[in-house]
Simulated assay, not measured.
Amino acid sequence: MTQPTDPGLKPILRGLRGRCPACGKGRLFSGYLRQEPACSHCGEPTGLIRAEDGPPWLTVLILGPVLAPLSFMVSMKSPAPLWISLIALGAFAIGAVLFLLPRIKGGFIGLLWRMQQKEQT
Rank of each mutant, 00 (worst) to 15 (best):
Y32C: 08
G18W: 11
S40V: 11
A68Q: 05
A38V: 11
L48W: 07
E52I: 12
R14E: 00
L13M: 13
L28D: 07
R50V: 10
P45A: 10
G15V: 02
E44Y: 14
L48H: 14
E52M: 15
H41R: 05
V66T: 00
L48V: 13
V60A: 10
T5S: 15
R17I: 02
G31A: 15
C39F: 00
I49F: 03
C42S: 00
Q35R: 15
L13C: 05
P21M: 04
P21D: 01
C39T: 05
L9A: 06
T59R: 05
L16V: 12
E52N: 15
A68R: 09
P55V: 09
G15W: 04
P65L: 06
D53E: 07
A51G: 04
K10Y: 00
T59Q: 04
R34V: 11
L9T: 03
I49E: 02
E36G: 05
G8D: 12
H41K: 09
L63T: 06
T46V: 13
G18C: 12
R14C: 02
I49C: 05
T59Y: 02
C23L: 07
L61W: 08
Q3V: 13
R17V: 00
C20H: 11
T5M: 14
G64M: 08
C42W: 01
R50K: 15
Q3S: 15
T46N: 08
H41E: 11
G24W: 01
P4L: 04
A51C: 03
L28M: 13
G26Q: 01
R14Y: 01
Y32R: 11
G8R: 15
C20P: 12
H41W: 09
G47F: 01
G18Q: 09
L9I: 04
P37G: 09
